[in-house]
């Protein structure tokens, strides 16, 4: 990751726009019935910010930055566990309840 800083930024920007486009198509394909679980999952994965918090909490010793990092880890963990679990709960309700014979109109 040691590259010229403006180069790094452009790479980041490229990744960002491509990810937005992927996000656009993937999210439109989500069935409206599952929009609540979608919010649950996105909430959980946005807590991947924990990566930054771990880096801040990583070094030895105790300083301001480390405390902030640890708080960040706690907050993000609440979300990760909470988000995935609540999504799991929601999705398990959407199991098929009728028999496989689905009458078509």
């Amino acid at each position: 990751m040691e590259a010229h800083s403006s180069e790094v930024f452009v790479i980041g920007l490229t990744v960002f726009f491509l990810a937005c486009i992927i996000g656009y198509y993937v999210v439109w394909s989500v069935t409206p019935a599952l929009h609540s679980p979608l919010m649950g999952v996105t909430n959980a994965i946005s807590s991947v910010i924990i990566v930054g918090a771990i880096l801040a909490a990583g070094p030895q010793g105790f300083d301001t930055s480390k405390i902030f990092g640890l708080i960040g880890v706690v907050l993000a963990s609440v979300n990760i566990f909470g988000g995935f679990l609540v999504t799991y709960r929601m999705l398990s309700m959407f199991k098929k309840k009728t028999k496989k014979t689905r009458e078509k109109k």
Binding site: G12, A19, C20, V27, S46, V48, I49, G52
Partner: peptide, 22 residues
């Protein structure tokens, strides 16, 4: 972007796009 971390950028963009569409 601050940490030049692509994983965070990708995930953030996915979530951002999702919320915007909703």
């Amino acid at each position: 972007f601050t940490l030049s971390n692509n994983l965070l950028i990708i995930t953030g963009a996915l979530v951002g796009a999702s919320g915007a569409i909703l």
